[in-house]
Each structure stands twice: as C-alpha cells, then as structure tokens.
C-alpha cells in the first residue's frame, strides 16, 4: 500500500527533487505551493506525512503547521519542517510550531528518504 505524502514547497526544482527521491511504487505525492493550498489539501485528502517548507507565499509553514496540529483529527500526521533558514533557534521554532522533524536545506535526498521511512514503515 502506498503512503500519501503532501509536499508543501513553492520552488519547482525542490518539488522535482522530492518527486525523484520518493519511489513512485511506495509513495503517492500530493503538492501544494502555499500555506493555504496546504491546509486545503490536508482537509480534503488526509496525507500520511507532510513535508513543509517554511518560507511560503501567504501564511508560512509554521502557521500552517500550527493550524494542522490544532485540529484533533489531523494532529497525528507527522510534519517535517524543511527550510533553508539557518539561523540558530530555527529548529526550536519549528518544534514549538508542532513540527515532528526539522530538515535543513540543503538536505541529502537519501537521508530525507531514510527519515521518512522511519515514520511510515
């Protein structure tokens, strides 16, 4: 059975990299390019895991995460913050918003896949 992953990312190259990283046999990919689209997608088709870029047009990844984690029906969906903000304290901010994992860009696709597998085995 394939797992559904929601990729929230406004950059086409980074979406493509994730598409190429996740084997199509194991994962079904849904995409959103903004925080608003992400919330819509989560409500409509409950994904099994969310990869959340932080800097997004409209509401940012932290706010989107807070809203998803505030919903008891969606709270259990693991959310990975994927961000190129490298300031110290960023990881705490991500965790405080409710993110389950923090992945700094540039990330290794191989390692990202390994981390996703830990959650969806």
């Amino acid at each position: 059975m394939s797992n559904r992953i929601l990729v929230v990312e406004d950059q086409e190259d980074n979406r493509q990299i994730i598409r190429d990283t996740l084997p199509a046999t194991d994962y079904e990919i849904m995409e959103a390019e903004s925080g608003e689209q992400a919330l819509e997608a989560v409500a409509k088709q409950r994904p099994d895991l969310i990869l959340m870029d932080i800097q997004l047009p409209g509401i940012d990844g932290y706010e989107a995460t807070r809203r998803i984690k505030a919903d008891p029906a969606l709270r259990s969906i693991p959310i990975f913050a994927v961000t190129s903000y490298a300031l110290s304290g960023e990881e705490q901010k991500a965790r405080a918003a409710g993110c389950d994992e923090y992945v700094a860009k540039p990330y290794s696709p191989r390692q990202l896949l390994a981390k996703i597998r830990q959650y969806l085995s």
Partner: peptide
C-alpha cells in the same frame, strides 16, 4: 542555500 539545495540534491 535554496539553489544550492537543488544543485546538491
């Protein structure tokens, strides 16, 4: 870092 993510990825 954003384009570098694409290059290294």
């Amino acid at each position: 870092r954003t384009p570098l993510n694409a290059i290294l990825g």
